[in-house]
């Protein structure tokens, strides 16, 4: 090989090596880079493709209203049934063979009489109705509490009520979350979501207490979905109305139940004194959680029509309608 050939081959080898090195190492905005502009990171780094969640809502039957309110109507079980009858009856929404997820508020390890968590008695009746009356295949109960999930489910008596009624409790763990894509949400457009209990679920029901909240005035049906978020969610308290309004479009539930039998009137969301809890005689079922929250804010928390800011924001995001006039039905006695 003469010198000229040697130089040519060295140049060729060097050129090929440089080209390969450039293509593989060039930053994403350089021409010819094979790096993904939208997904920076290493090729071997695990990445999560955002998931979506289906719409669980069911159109209400003709003649039914959006918000059914049972007052002064006997036992909690009777009130629950009558409230749901107001929106068309539970058999309209839950079909035989359905897998149903019920989301109570189990945020704290408090006993039920403190009003900080959902009432276990109402939950038990709801699960029995779903399993017995509607012949559902399975009822799952889940929440991602702030504190130890085991302690919260035990002290709030939600675990006992669920198991007594034949439901199944799903507790969160680090593998139970998926990245969820929520179009239209300002803070949680892509956020970790307690996904595992939603596998193959057909219907979703929210069961929440009505309580005062130190930051957003009131925690009711919409705020209840906060318990499905994972990650560093406490940062959202900086924009509490923004996050609660996002929650109104996170889930399109089949319907929600607001437990107005024990209303935490002050020192919410944690409470700690039973005298802060007002015993009311009311259970609400609703296919529009924005409207039912507005009604409960006015009538159960007794705070007039100066609604929390998040309700108007929820309406603008498509979570429902604040104006409940003409869309409710009160069942008395």
């Amino acid at each position: 090989m003469d010198r000229r050939q040697f130089i040519r081959r060295i140049a060729t080898a060097g050129g090929v090596t440089s080209a390969v090195g450039y293509v593989s190492l060039a930053p994403e905005n350089w021409p010819g880079s094979i790096r993904d502009k939208n997904k920076p990171g290493l090729r071997s780094m695990p990445r999560h493709t955002p998931d979506t969640i289906q719409d669980f809502s069911v159109a209400k039957p003709a003649g039914a209203v959006d918000v059914g309110i049972a007052r002064k109507a006997g036992t909690p079980k009777v009130k629950l049934r009558r409230a749901i009858d107001g929106i068309g009856g539970i058999e309209h929404y839950i079909k035989p063979g359905d897998i149903v997820l019920v989301k109570p508020n189990v945020a704290f390890d408090r006993s039920p009489n403190l009003g900080a968590t959902s009432d276990p008695e109402i939950l038990q009746h709801l699960i029995e109705m779903i399993l017995v009356d509607c012949r559902a295949q399975e009822v799952r109960v889940c929440d991602n509490p702030i504190e130890s999930p085991q302690d919260c489910f035990a002290k709030s008596k939600i675990r006992q009520a669920t198991e007594m009624a034949g439901g199944r409790v799903y507790l969160p763990d680090s593998n139970a979350f998926k990245m969820l894509h929520t179009p239209g949400a300002s803070l949680i457009e892509e956020w970790w979501f307690f996904h595992r209990p939603f596998t193959n679920v057909d219907k979703v029901i929210g069961l929440s207490p009505v309580k005062d909240h130190n930051l957003c005035n009131a925690s009711m049906a919409i705020k209840n979905w906060y318990g499905l978020l994972g990650g560093t969610r406490n940062q959202f308290h900086q924009d509490i109305h923004g996050i609660v309004s996002d929650l109104s479009i996170l889930i399109k539930p089949t319907f929600v139940v607001l437990d107005g039998t024990k209303v935490l009137m002050q020192n919410g969301p944690t409470g700690g004194d039973p005298s802060n809890v007002k015993k009311n005689d009311c259970v609400i079922a609703s296919v529009d959680q924005v409207a039912s929250d507005a009604w409960a804010f006015e009538h159960l928390l007794e705070r007039g029509r100066e609604y929390p800011e998040y309700l108007a924001m929820a309406e603008s995001k498509g979570g429902g309608k604040v104006d409940w006039d003409g869309r409710t039905k009160e069942i008395l006695g």
């Binding site: 702030i146 504190e147 130190n214 969301p269 944690t270």
Partner: peptide, 10 residues
């Protein structure tokens, strides 16, 4: 926040 969540700011 891990204990009382929204009650903490008060």
């Amino acid at each position: 926040f891990e204990k009382i969540n929204g009650g903490a700011p008060q």
